[in-house]
Design a protein around this nucleic acid. Structure first.
Lengths: 136, 136
DNA sequence: CAGGATCCCAGATGATACTG
DNA sequence: CAGTATCATCTGGGATCCTG
């Protein structure tokens, strides 16, 4: 298959949480997992400035396969972060757009993104140092 | 081997960015990818309140395998987010601790985490609806 | 105790071909 | 155009055994 709409993501044995202090970890991680997904991030960003069509997204996100774009969009739709609007024309046309929920998610993602941008150098440097210390 | 210290993460063909407006996507996504990693998030959270030993972490993070804990910690060390201190005693003892950089990362992660917590219900509901609309 | 080395399988992803 | 279906591959990750 590999066509499941329910990616593995996070599903710890709900039996016991890692730490009582962080009882919400599971839910959080599940969402962070989606956010951390390579393609998901890009799709959300591409949808920042209004609705986009399937092939439009495919062209914007250089390197994504048709299959992965479909799966990514389905996942986002499932989580209520993106809406899918079908225009029954010929040829068919489908628009994808962020929901309010999706737009809300953008904020924290962008915040994290800014941190990432600001510390890119440091991390790259750390990696370089580490890789050199060991056998690159 | 799957033992590589350099996980796939994001590596778009640096040739062209998806969108000029988001020229930093690659670096950002690379870091988001690390943050989105299931175990990485947990390890960072577990290290919030001071240094921890290997097996200590292993016990706290219910369900993580030895292999994955090792790999996760190595990745964090490589990125300069965690330090690894070896005490040459017998039996050996190794402490892991967040660096300043690592602690800085906590902020945005927590922010995102809060969003996640606050919208857990909505997402769960959306999923349920979606799954029902289709063949569960 | 900390972690390296192996074996191995399930699931993620790409490539390709077909369709309403 | 916007997918779906199928096949092939490649990798993440668990289980297990070994060692300083």
């Amino acid at each position: 298959m590999g066509t499941s709409l329910k990616p593995a993501h996070i599903d710890l044995p709900a039996t016991q949480m890692p730490d009582p202090n962080h009882a919400d970890c599971r839910g959080v991680a599940s969402i962070l997992s989606r956010v951390g997904d390579k393609w998901t991030v890009f799709v959300i960003m591409m949808l920042s400035d209004g609705p986009k069509r399937f092939n439009e997204l495919k062209r914007m996100i250089n390197g994504i396969s048709q299959r992965m774009l479909t799966l990514t969009l389905r996942g986002l739709e499932r989580d209520g972060l993106v809406t899918r609007t079908i225009f029954p024309t010929i040829p068919p046309r489908v628009d994808y757009e962020l929901t309010d929920l999706g737009r809300g998610l953008q904020q924290p993602v962008v915040a994290l993104g800014q941190w990432a941008v600001e510390h890119q150098q440091q991390i790259a440097a750390a990696r370089a140092r580490f890789d050199e210390r060991n056998g690159g």
